[in-house]
Computed example of a mutant assay.
Amino acid sequence: MSALALVAVLAACAGSPLATSDAPSAPPAKTAPRIPDQVSNAAWETDMQRFAAEDAQSPPPRGGVVFTGSSSIRLWDTLAQDFPGVPVINRGFGGSELRDSTWYADRTIVRYAPRQILIYAGDNDLNSGRSPQQLRADFIAFVERVRRDLPKAEIAYISTKPSPSRAQLLPAQREANALVAAEAKRLGVDYIDVFTPMLDTAGQPNEALFIDDRLHMNAAGYDIWQRVITPYVK
């Protein structure tokens, strides 16, 4: 073999997979949540970082009661006062959907080892186009996710609320609430009906319970929630 041919063979071997098989492989890239399969909005990561900062400054007690879900929880400023003597932890975030709470359960629920989790989610889900059947499936997935790490924790699902700005969703809400209530019974989860007491005498969303956006509640709305939810808090 000529010297030139030998150089060519050596160069080919140097570039072959066998020549580099002992080199350390790069770590796999962290998988980002898929939109919309796993989460409805990747921006919730900002909320997760906010929770971590709050925990670092003032660590919540273990064995408490976590309230999580969408903005109706996030905006519940009087949560601690409404449940005196209960070590409540508010982990509501953005306009989240039920599947978001499932995806971020390790950072909003599991890390606190709570004795009970109360979740409000489903309103935004239906508004974004998810069906009552999808919401039922998302509810089952949430319960399974929580029980994987917290098999002894109690779970309570707060039904969707009837908002004046989303009155067109009432039929879908009624169907979804009924489907989730049936699954909750089967799974041993408390189902809390806030839908019915928030209707007016005509069976429509009670305008008096909402702020100007006709979506989020005022103090009167939260008073109903406090009264209805209190018997379920453990």
Results as ranks from 00 to 15, higher is better:
E45L: 11
E45S: 12
E45K: 10
T46E: 15
T46N: 14
T46W: 13
D47G: 15
M48L: 13
M48K: 01
Q49T: 12
Q49P: 02
Q49A: 14
R50P: 03
R50K: 15
F51R: 00
A52N: 07
A52G: 05
A52I: 01
A52W: 10
A53L: 12
A53F: 07
E54L: 14
E54H: 06
D55P: 09
D55T: 10
A56T: 07
A56M: 01
A56S: 14
S58C: 08
P59R: 07
P59E: 13
P59T: 08
P61W: 01
R62I: 09
R62V: 13
R62K: 15
G63Y: 10
G64I: 08
G64K: 10
V65N: 08
V65I: 15
V65T: 12
V65D: 08
V66Y: 04
V66A: 04
V66L: 02
V66S: 06
F67M: 11
T68S: 08
T68D: 02
T68L: 03
G69Q: 05
G69F: 00
S70Q: 05
S70G: 09
S71H: 12
S71G: 11
S71A: 13
S71I: 08
S71L: 11
S71M: 12
I73F: 10
I73C: 05
I73D: 06
R74L: 11
R74P: 07
R74S: 14
L75C: 11
L75W: 14
L75R: 15
W76F: 12
W76Q: 05
W76N: 09
W76L: 09
D77W: 08
D77V: 03
D77I: 00
D77S: 14
L79N: 07
A80Q: 11
A80I: 03
A80N: 11
A80G: 07
A80W: 06
Q81S: 14
D82Y: 04
D82N: 12
D82E: 06
D82M: 04
D82G: 05
F83R: 06
F83S: 08
F83N: 03
F83L: 13
F83K: 03
P84Y: 13
G85I: 07
V86G: 01
V86K: 09
V86F: 08
P87G: 10
V88A: 05
I89D: 04
I89E: 05
N90C: 03
N90F: 06
R91K: 04
G92I: 04
G92H: 00
F93K: 01
F93P: 00
G94R: 00
G94P: 09
G94C: 00
G94A: 11
G95F: 07
S96E: 02
E97S: 13
E97Y: 09
E97I: 03
E97F: 06
E97Q: 15
L98C: 12
L98R: 09
L98Y: 12
L98H: 12
R99D: 09
R99Y: 09
D100W: 04
D100G: 10
S101F: 10
S101G: 15
S101D: 15
T102I: 02
T102K: 13
T102A: 05
W103T: 03
W103V: 02
W103S: 01
Y104H: 10
Y104R: 11
Y104C: 00
Y104E: 02
D106Q: 11
